[in-house]
Design a binder for these strands. Structure first.
Lengths: 225, 225
DNA sequence: CCTCTACTATCAGTATCTTCATATTCCTAA
DNA sequence: TTAGGAATATGAAGATACTGATAGTAGAGG
């Protein structure tokens, strides 16, 4: 779950980052309008926390730009004052929720979870190439045919498909699938073994995408050459 | 019921540990400031017995750190001298009770029981995701709908929800739910069977959190991907 | 005391996961 | 271009976890 925090107050941004990281979200930061635009163009996020007042522009402008460009990211507007205007404007522009400063971290977490859940609920299935995943039933279809996957295999494939085409670091994948209890031993045998199984099943079922290794970083799901 | 004893006097710590263990509490020990910080960061306790004088720092500092970080553990301050200063400082920092050395074990037990009772009484309901538990009526709601749970199922779910997101070792869960019944046979079939039932009921009721297995350790309650 | 019922424990069979040893691939420096 | 080391891949084996069926147990009610 990847989240972009657009907030110029560094201290607050750091606190939020810490809290969200602890909850196992993947967090990135932007500190101004321009930085946010760059980040959004380059990566894909599940949720964007957007401060209204930025040093070089308004978060609301960024929001309307975002929505105009057809991006599907969920957005939670954060405003310094409990301004009805900001709230109304934000929600009209397509924001998913609104939060007034100061707020409790617990409240923030709850909003994010709610937004993300709503968003996922809307999506019946994920796909990449001829692979289709239904998160609700934990089922996988490749080329129209049902493929049985173990728990870990499913988690891994789900992660890849939901980030199809993006570079995925080993550490991040491990964290997402196994959780934060993995120690810092640089031994990823457990990951290799599972990735191998996923690849085998994908190949057997005739998938038209593959998990490519990126030496020194991790993996990437790409169409077969 | 898990208790952390922070006490550098090994002999005293051992006596307390014995007494509390006999009373069926789960007891862990830390012998200095640093060790306590580590323990507290890693695990969650229902009650912490905190000596003021530690070889590498003051228990009062540890207390304020604890409270500042929003931890919910109950704390009973233990001081070598019957110092009014320590008592006042401790209680002001948010300690739940104060006990001067030397003390009777009976007294210690009474204080712990009182603190724990107060603590449980204060919380009307626990929740994680769309699961809500009322400890007073032993009732469980998932997504707003009442779900019937047997005693063991309830105990397990309660334990998970009260420690949502934390890694829960099989041994600890077993100890918490079954008490002294578990022998040292490394057979956890009885636990698996119950966890299976809880999972089934959670899935049937449409919970948005799940009990994930952590190979070689135990479980973890996490939001569904 | 008996019966019924819901709960709990146990067992055996199966699936899954990690680990280890070993192989292969990839990158870099010379 | 090639040697050598690092990173990744593989197969097999043992450990761990899950499942469904079955049997035992306690409690309620007659």
């Amino acid at each position: 779950m990847k989240i972009l925090i657009v907030e110029d107050n560094r201290e607050l941004a750091e606190i939020m980052t810490l809290a969200l990281t602890k909850e196992r979200f993947i967090v990135e930061n932007a500190y101004d309008y321009l930085g946010a635009v760059r980040k959004i163009a380059e990566y894909e996020y599940d949720c964007i926390l957007l401060d209204v007042m930025l040093p070089d522009g308004s978060g609301l402008d960024l929001l309307s730009e975002l929505k105009a460009s057809g991006k599907s990211e969920s957005v939670i507007i954060i405003s310094a004052r409990d301004s009805i205007d900001d709230k109304v404007a934000g929600l009209e522009l397509g924001a998913d929720d609104y939060l007034a400063k100061p707020f409790h971290l617990v409240e923030l977490l709850a909003r994010i979870r709610s937004v993300v859940r709503r968003r996922q609920g809307g999506v019946l299935e994920l796909s990449a190439g001829n692979i289709t995943i239904r998160p609700d039933s934990h089922s996988v279809k490749i080329g129209g045919k049902q493929v049985e996957m173990s728990r870990k295999e499913y988690d891994i494939l789900h992660y890849f498909v939901s980030r199809s085409g993006h570079l995925i670091k080993k550490e991040v994948l491990a964290e997402a699938v196994w959780g934060d209890h993995i120690d810092q031993s640089d031994d990823f045998d457990f990951l290799y073994a599972q990735v191998k199984n996923v690849r085998r099943k994908m190949a057997e079922a005739g998938a038209d995408v593959e998990i490519k290794a990126v030496y020194g970083f991790g993996y990437k799901l790409t169409p077969i050459a």
